[in-house]
Nucleic acid binder design. Structure first.
Lengths: 158, 158
DNA sequence: GGATTCAGGTAGACATGTCAACTACTTCTG
DNA sequence: CAGAAGTAGTTGACATGTCTACCTGAATCC
């Protein structure tokens, strides 16, 4: 850790801006969704994946992989969501260890009501402020950064 | 919430990419910093602000405003950091309600050791993957998005 | 065809963050 | 200067997330 290469002016501007944006956009989305629907962003992500899956169900580890969540986080979260009636946990016939996570009618209604609001928020807080060029730049930036990230240890896929 | 305007292909690409990047970059930074130094990103942010302040100290509400944290989050966090010896809480002479938060020598050593590593991580996970054009684009995007965000309720500055 | 190893999930202890209620001090207003 | 309103901060209950240890049921490998 001898000589650190600090950020120059442009790098610093990008980093500070990015940091503030990432933090505040997430906070704004979370609070808005939570107040309007009672769903957290985490709940929302789970419900979206289930609602797009065949027969409204996924194996827990598939869900964990898709969300990039640790398995224990997933387990805790699913237990809490089940208690609220949003999902159901069913044991899996083909694999005795396995678990099917199934969207309930309540869960489906929740996600269908929340989705338009959430998309409007995503537009209002982020997307609609950007030009087509900026959208493209943001997509390319994200893809490049993601490609360079360490391929995670400690997740469901480990 | 009648007819929702969904995201078109480019918007969706930007949004999904952004979301994944924001999530994974933060996670990577947090884990790396935590493992190497025992500091969380929150600890780090507090220490940076204090170390840059005159006389290594700030009024708690100034710190809260700068970090955009709720006052109760700040209060809890400072109590925990004080227990670890990173900061000290001292009552304020000029305002009986007030609190000075002071960086301890231990805290200063912690931030000085952590900073080079953290900057290297910021480079390695984000900045160094981007061209000058992309850095500029990211800065401009952030600034535009931040300008459009609701000016927060519920924070220390309320 | 057991013994070992691995994969899918669960559980508990703990760290962090949010919300609402509360205390104590200041400031404003008449 | 007294009462009202605002500001600074704390506290406790609770939601969420992480880490470690564990259990059970597959796979693998002689």
């Amino acid at each position: 850790m001898e000589e650190a290469r600090w950020l120059d002016e442009l790098e610093d501007r990008a980093w500070r801006g990015y940091q503030a944006m990432a933090d505040q956009v997430e906070t704004a989305l979370h609070r808005s969704l939570m107040r309007a629907t009672g769903l957290s962003l985490s709940d929302y992500a789970v419900l979206v994946h289930l609602s797009e899956a065949p027969q409204d169900r996924l194996r827990a580890f598939e869900l964990g992989t898709a969300l990039r969540w640790e398995k224990s986080r997933l387990s805790h979260h699913l237990r809490r969501m089940e208690k609220r009636g949003l999902v159901e946990r069913r044991s899996c016939e083909t694999d005795g260890r396995g678990l099917h996570v199934v969207l309930t009618p309540v869960g489906r209604r929740a996600i269908e009501e929340a989705a338009p609001l959430h998309v409007a928020d995503v537009r209002g807080f982020l997307i609609d402020h950007l030009s087509r060029d900026q959208l493209l730049a943001l997509a390319e930036i994200s893809e490049k950064v993601l490609a360079g990230l360490p391929s995670d240890e400690g997740l469901c896929s480990d």
